[in-house]
Amino acid sequence: CCDLDLYKQSRGLEDPELLARETVFSVSEIEALYELFKKISSAVIDDGLINKEEFQLALFKTNKKESLFADRVFDLFDTKHNGILGFEEFARALSVFHPNAPIDDKIEFSFQLYDLKQQGFIERQEVKQMVVATLAESGMNLSDDVIESIIDKTFEEADTKHDGKIDKEEWRSLVLRHPSLLKNMTLQYLKKWTSPLHS
């Protein structure tokens, strides 16, 4: 009757000190994060775990929205691959988004995010799929020619090995040249939000 995986997930805040040692968060930040986690994880089913619907609800404030990227982010957070997030998974993943997290972790996470098929490289077709999804989400309409030109230009710059794909090394060099591409990998908000001054 029961999903055994549900019971393997740790529930509750068991060892904030350990989690603080293994992430960039302080113990009080972990505790503040746990309060947020409790709120998100009780939005649909109050089971101390975040499912995809609850994650989307917290992101978009509606569960009606379909988003390729919200799915990708959820799947990357879900390191146990069981379709639900325990607090540890949630805290470890968000740690990468902390302003003090190492840049290499942010580069790695963003690469995995865009490597839709998890092949170890980002291919042109994946970039097109993501551009089209982004445009559709925002209701922006661009002709296929314009989309192709944007992608051509991006590959001209990023694909320095000229093999039609962007590998991790090329990705790293691209984002180091254009730090704005990693802008959404840092939540300044996270630092402010978890500070004791936050009301």
Partner: peptide, 26 residues
Amino acid sequence: MAPVTMNAFELISTSQGLNLSSLFEK
């Protein structure tokens, strides 16, 4: 309107699904 000179990843990074700060908003 996205200019053709825009990097595709710049455009992608504007997606609402990648804006995790909204997790912290009520």
